[in-house]
Amino acid sequence: MLFFLSHIRDIFARSHSRSQEIALSRRAFFRLLGYLASCVFFSLAAQGHV
């Protein structure tokens, strides 16, 4: 499984420039933050705190 993931990472690295990798990583990070924030918001809303 670890070999598979490293192979996928190698394919990704070869198909994108360094600046593209940084931009994609940043976008993925902020999407993850947005997802987690929405989970917290809906959890608080379901409990009646919001």
Rank of each mutant, 00 (worst) to 15 (best):
M1S: 12
M1G: 13
M1P: 12
M1T: 12
M1F: 14
M1N: 13
L2A: 10
L2W: 15
L2H: 09
L2R: 07
L2K: 13
F3D: 12
F3S: 15
F3L: 10
F3M: 09
F3E: 13
F4C: 04
F4L: 10
L5R: 08
L5E: 09
L5S: 11
L5Y: 10
S6C: 10
S6V: 07
S6A: 15
S6T: 15
H7A: 15
H7G: 09
H7L: 15
I8Q: 10
I8P: 05
R9H: 04
R9W: 04
D10A: 05
D10F: 13
I11N: 05
F12Y: 13
F12S: 01
F12N: 06
A13R: 09
R14M: 03
R14I: 08
R14F: 00
S15T: 04
S15Y: 04
S15E: 05
H16T: 04
H16I: 00
H16F: 07
H16P: 00
H16W: 03
R18T: 09
R18Y: 11
S19K: 09
S19M: 05
S19N: 02
S19A: 09
S19C: 06
Q20S: 12
E21Q: 13
E21M: 12
I22H: 02
I22E: 00
I22W: 02
I22T: 01
A23C: 05
A23G: 01
L24R: 15
L24G: 02
S25R: 12
S25G: 08
S25I: 05
S25Q: 07
S25H: 07
S25W: 02
R26A: 01
R26K: 14
R26L: 09
R26V: 08
R26S: 07
R27H: 11
R27K: 15
R27V: 00
A28M: 02
A28Q: 12
A28T: 09
A28I: 05
F29P: 06
F29D: 15
F30E: 05
F30P: 11
R31V: 01
R31P: 01
R31L: 03
R31S: 02
R31W: 04
L32P: 00
L33Y: 02
L33V: 08
L33M: 09
L33E: 14
G34T: 03
G34I: 05
G34P: 06
G34D: 11
G34A: 14
G34N: 11
Y35M: 05
Y35G: 03
Y35T: 06
L36I: 07
L36C: 12
L36G: 03
L36E: 11
L36F: 12
A37T: 06
A37D: 11
A37Q: 10
A37H: 04
A37E: 07
S38P: 02
S38M: 03
S38G: 06
C39N: 14
C39W: 00
F41E: 00
F41K: 02
F42E: 02
F42V: 03
F42M: 07
F42D: 03
S43N: 08
S43L: 11
L44K: 00
L44P: 00
L44Y: 00
A45F: 15
A45T: 03
A45P: 02
A45C: 06
A46S: 12
A46E: 01
Q47L: 10
Q47S: 13
Q47V: 00
Q47M: 10
G48L: 07
G48R: 14
G48S: 11
G48T: 10
H49N: 02
H49Y: 09
H49V: 15
H49C: 01
V50N: 06
